[in-house]
Nucleic acid binder design. Structure first.
Length: 1035
RNA sequence: GGGCCCGUAGCAUAGACAGGUGGUGCACCCGGCUGAUAACCGGGAGGUCGUGCGUUCGAAUCGCACCGGGCCCA
């Protein structure tokens, strides 16, 4: 197939690279199944589909796994072990796990190029990232600066926001007094949960409009003056166990701004003595705790921004491992969280109150260490400078669903800040910036060749530590060394759209294909890959790298909760495949809900899909024995099949054949239309529904007798041709969604000259000329009739096996009458009725009941009301109804003369005669007369007998073509008479008997024959003994 | 705290953009069928359409608020 489409119109798909963890979960499976389905469809449409898979193989998660294997605890262990060997271990880990995952994807029937996937660790891929960074540099978008970042003190690196995992943690909750400069015993009161950030305090923030109070507070005979937001005073003082207080003065935050104070830790942290602490205004201050916020620009994002704005010191006395530096005074060398206690002690009388708090705190997602915020030197891409362009590219892209782009992604990008692309780790793409220590000159290299040329080196693997050894002579005479950082892994995958087609090393493919026609990922990738790719591509090419995006949901458990190991609610794709097979998993996932909604996994629904697939399998298998028996071969052109015979014979074919042909073409057109909008749930439901309702429940039921015809007949041939056509068409329709079952059915049905695989066929869109919507409407009515008759029969307790005399249909319109006149035989057959009468006026067998209306009778007749009621009930309701309809009045002879009843005294309701049962169908009412005549009774019993003989054949495991002899004893004389009168031949023929003898007495039986199976049956309360044997001559 | 999406029977879903008697499947109960058979088919019962307020002659559908779930951000 792929060969066939080579050189045709290309369709450029880019695979969002999964991270090489080594195992896939349901969400990953969903993701790839959606991709595979859509890719297969486009291949069938004759497009040259670029289906290269990809893997994201760098990054901290792998480093942490390897560290764990080696029993390492921190960066020093890695450095001691040797970065080179460490990197090799990481590489091995990534490659081996990539292989495992490729096998898992292949097992799901994912038909993508896993033999040659793009990998973020190959030199050409790394060059793609270098090239992009150089572009950013050239455009002035690459910046280096101090920023507060999430920092893992164990991994000793900045980590991305997305790498922070939150859960509840208990921390101290401290209220601290900051002494106001020059005012003894007067303090600002702040609140913090991170005592270790107090040595870095430089300011206190207040809201400009909040009202703050100066209170004199009494405690153990001492008086202090405290500044606290007015509405919080009482609460805070209670926590501090003050015995009494009074408010002396009010000031707004604005008035308070500029107030100078000193650090309570000035003695312990000498550096604090140089800092000019003051009160500043900020927008993020909230009215809780004390209404005053401790500001440490070295340890908080908001703090940092405020610091820049207010010109505050960015003081960060904490190193990469989370230890205080020499600037941390007496705390130097201590790990920050361990220093908490000592800091609290050092606060002494400056501590107003100490409580505990349980709150959400961030942790490193891989090593679970609580993170800290640290101002560090990092590399950034200045997103705000290209934001407008990014937003306009979002609008130019087609999103499925529309709101994924116009609302969700748009809003995310609108709020986007600078993108921190640097990490202080080992296993990643090295940032290609060389710096001269002497003159601070920087060079950014876009390729290894450029670097090798400048350095006179021969670098082949651009990973650390090899790349770190390359030095470049600087124009100042000094030597340039690479900066130590590596890239954030999101920068890696952002290159995918051009790296996967070999750019920048090779240009042809890029010029031909880029940007991508289509990408597809989960909603979490809004901030992930959708974003990183758009950012990188806007930097490099000023445009979006993709034209169409389909965003899918998340796989949740049955309760709509996230699947997680700790909750024990994880369902693995392997588990589903093991129980039901790949195609069932695929069809379940596709049909369960719209792609962009979250999937609540539900085993029951999986097994429902499984049942439908099983029915498909049964439908496919059912005609095979007859076809084989008859040596059926579909009409063909030489040894290749095509639907010419169907098209040519369509006019002559029976209604049901033309109907199912029309249906499958209608369904096919609908599937094609749904595919255009990626309504995969609608289309898969449409296919499954067709199999269940149209093919299995209706067509196969109707066509069965035609397959059992003994002799060759056109009717049988049409049935064979039709079902063959349906199965061939269905295979093609199913190929993208259930590739295995489609292939299995196809490979058995295909002719010698047909393509060897269903996956080599082109997509079929359905043909208008094979669709007869009139016929579909009429057949729909007959189906509705079929159900109504079953309904009425059930009410009348008449089994379907027993024929009924007349079924009357009161039609509400022409269309219904037409349906019955054109498909009369089919309707009779389905209803098992001798005749069907279709009328458009009133049904004359309906009886009426007169119900007295006492509310009116009382006032009209007074005392004799109850007697009138009785008279009405006893009267001939039909005569009464007719007379009232005619004359408006009805006269009854009452005890005191004639009584005149008018329309207001009585209400008429329909009454069904005893043997007639009704049911509603579309645009009509069906009346079934279940009255038995001798003839109907005889046929009913005959069918009862036949069914029991068939049951016995089955017990003996007889083949369809084997003949039998039957002996039956029917003691009931009425039944004996019915069965022996005229139905014996019919029985013999139906059950394939060469001889049938029915006796009334057991003593009449031929005792010389030993019956292979002999048993008593209860038929409607009467006992019948039946013995059967295989006929001699059929053996 | 903010953005987006979702909430319909025991469970899973359609209907919502374009307001007008809430459909379907599974499970349940009852029945049928028996040349697809460790299958298949029909019927019945089951709903405060998350809650409240509003718009309207009329709201599952439109608006607002709240509650619950998911993804993302802070």
């Amino acid at each position: 197939m792929k060969e066939q489409n080579k050189g045709k119109k290309p369709w450029f798909f880019v695979d969002g690279p999964p991270y090489t963890t080594g195992h896939i979960h349901l969400g990953t499976a969903w993701n790839k199944i959606l991709k595979d389905t859509i890719l297969r469809y486009h291949r069938m449409k004759g497009l040259d589909v670029i289906d290269r898979a990809g893997y994201d193989m760098h990054g901290l998660p792998i480093e942490v796994r390897v560290e764990h294997e080696l029993g390492f605890e921190n960066k020093k262990d890695i450095e001691a072990y040797g970065i080179g060997t460490f990197i090799e271990r990481c590489k091995q880990f990534a490659i081996s796990h990539k292989e495992i995952m490729s096998d898992q994807f292949r097992a799901l029937g994912i038909w993508m190029d896993f033999d040659n996937p793009y990998q973020t660790i190959t030199p050409d891929y790394i060059e793609a990232a270098w090239w992009a960074l150089k572009k950013a540099h050239e455009k002035g978008l690459l910046e280096r600066g101090h920023r507060v970042v999430n920092w893992c003190p164990r991994c000793e690196t900045a980590i991305a926001d997305s790498e922070v995992e939150y859960w509840d943690e208990e921390d101290p909750s401290l209220f601290v007094k900051f002494p106001i400069l020059g005012k003894p015993d007067e303090y600002l009161v702040i609140w913090t949960t991170t005592p270790w950030t107090l040595p870095a305090n430089v300011a206190v923030a207040v809201d400009k409009d909040f009202v703050y109070a100066r209170v004199s507070a009494e405690k153990d005979g001492k008086t202090e003056y405290l500044w606290i937001a007015e509405s919080l005073v009482e609460d805070v003082l209670k926590k501090g166990r003050y015995q009494d207080f009074s408010i002396l003065e009010h000031k707004t935050g604005k008035e308070l701004a500029g107030t100078r104070y000193t650090s309570p830790l000035a003695d312990q942290v000498p550096r604090q003595k140089d800092i000019e602490h003051r009160v500043v205004l900020a927008g993020f201050v909230e009215m809780d705790n004390t209404g005053m916020v401790h500001i440490a620009p070295g340890h908080g994002w908001d703090d940092y921004l405020l610091g820049i704005q207010e010109g505050l010191d960015v003081f960060c006395p904490v190193d990469g491992a989370g230890h205080y530096t020499a600037e941390g005074g007496i705390f130097a060398g201590k790990f920050v969280r361990d220093a908490n206690e000592e800091i609290v002690k050092s606060l002494g009388s400056f501590l107003l109150a100490r409580k505990k708090i349980v709150h959400r705190y961030g942790h490193c997602w891989r090593c679970k260490t609580p993170i800290i915020y640290r101002a560090t030197e990092q590399w950034f891409i200045s997103i705000p400078k290209i934001k407008e362009q990014m937003l306009s590219e979002i609008r130019a892209t087609t999103w499925y669903p529309e709101w994924a782009g116009s609302a969700r992604f748009h809003d995310f990008v609108s709020d986007a800040r600078d993108w921190c692309i640097s990490r202080q780790r080992y296993w990643g793409i090295p940032i290609p910036v060389w710096e001269c220590k002497d003159c601070n000159k920087q060079m950014v290299f876009g390729t290894m060749a450029e670097l090798n040329q400048a350095a006179g080196s021969n670098l082949t693997d651009p990973h650390r530590p090899y790349v770190d050894q390359i030095t470049v002579p600087c124009s100042c005479g000094g030597t340039m060394h690479r900066v130590e950082d590596i890239f954030d892994v999101w920068f890696d995958s952002a290159m995918a759209s051009w790296a996967t087609i070999g750019f920048p090393a090779k240009k042809e493919m890029f010029e031909k294909l880029w940007p991508a026609d289509f990408i597809l990922e989960g909603q979490d990738q809004t901030r992930g890959w959708f974003y990183s790719q758009l950012g990188a591509s806007t930097i490099a090419f000023n445009r979006s790298p993709y034209k169409q995006v389909l965003m899918h949901g998340f796989a949740l458990d049955g309760d709509g909760k996230k699947m997680s190991k700790s909750l024990g609610n994880v369902v693995s794709p392997e588990e589903v495949v093991e129980k039901f097979g790949v195609d069932v998993l695929r069809l379940y996932i596709l049909s369960a809900n719209a792609p962009w909604e979250d999937l609540k996994f539900n085993w029951e629904s999986v097994s429902t899909v499984n049942r439908t697939i099983n029915i498909l399998w049964n439908v496919y298998r059912f005609p095979l024995p007859y076809m084989i028996l008859d040596d059926f071969a579909p009409s063909s052109m030489g040894d290749t099949w095509n639907p010419d015979f169907i098209t040519r014979s369509l006019r002559e074919m029976p209604d049901e054949d033309r109907w199912i042909i029309s249906r499958i073409n209608t369904v096919t057109r609908q599937v094609t239309a749904d595919m255009k909008e990626y309504n995969l749930h609608r289309l898969s439901r449409g296919i499954l529904n067709f199999v269940l309702e149209d093919l299995s429940r209706w067509y196969v039921q109707i066509v069965r007798p035609r397959m059992w015809l003994e002799e060759d007949s056109l009717d049988k041939k049409y049935a064979y041709e039709t079902i063959y056509y349906c199965m061939r068409t269905l295979c093609r329709l199913l190929a993208p969604y259930a590739p295995h079952i489609a292939e299995e059915i196809y490979s058995n049905l295909r002719l010698e000259g047909d393509p060897v695989s269903v996956h080599m066929l082109s997509w079929y869109e359905g043909e208008e000329r094979l669709i007869d919507s009139d016929l579909e409407t009429r057949m729909g009515l007959i189906r509705s009739f079929d159900e109504a008759v079953a309904n009425a029969r059930q009410a009348g307790k008449r089994k379907l096996r027993w024929p009924v005399g007349t079924v009357t249909v009161v039609a509400k319109n022409e269309v219904v009458s037409k349906a019955f006149s054109s498909m009369y035989n089919l309707a009779c057959q389905r209803a098992n009725a001798r005749e069907i009468l279709v009328i458009t006026d009133q049904y004359d067998k309906i009886l009426w009941k007169a119900e007295p209306i006492m509310k009116k009778i009382g006032p009209s007749f007074g005392k004799i009301g109850p007697q009138v009621k009785k008279l009405i009930e006893e009267a001939d309701a039909i005569a009464m109804r007719n007379q009232i309809a005619e004359k408006g009045v009805y006269a009854i002879a009452g005890p005191e003369g004639e009584i005149t009843i008018t329309t207001e005294h009585v209400m008429f309701t329909e009454v069904m005669p005893d043997n007639i049962f009704s049911a509603e169908m579309t645009d009509a009412t069906v009346f079934v007369d279940v009255t038995l005549t001798a003839d109907l009774e005889a046929e009913g019993y005959t069918r009862e007998l036949i069914r029991r003989i068939q049951e016995m054949r089955k017990q003996l495991n007889l083949n369809v073509e084997e003949m039998i002899v039957i002996d039956a004893i029917v003691q009931d004389s009425h039944l004996f008479e019915l069965l022996t009168q005229s139905w014996q031949d019919a029985i013999s023929k139906e059950v394939r008997a060469t001889a049938l003898s029915i006796h009334q007495n057991g003593s009449d039986r031929d005792t010389t024959t030993l019956w292979q199976l002999d048993r008593d049956w209860d038929i409607e309360g009467l006992t019948v003994t039946i013995g059967i044997s295989v006929a001699e001559n059929s053996r």
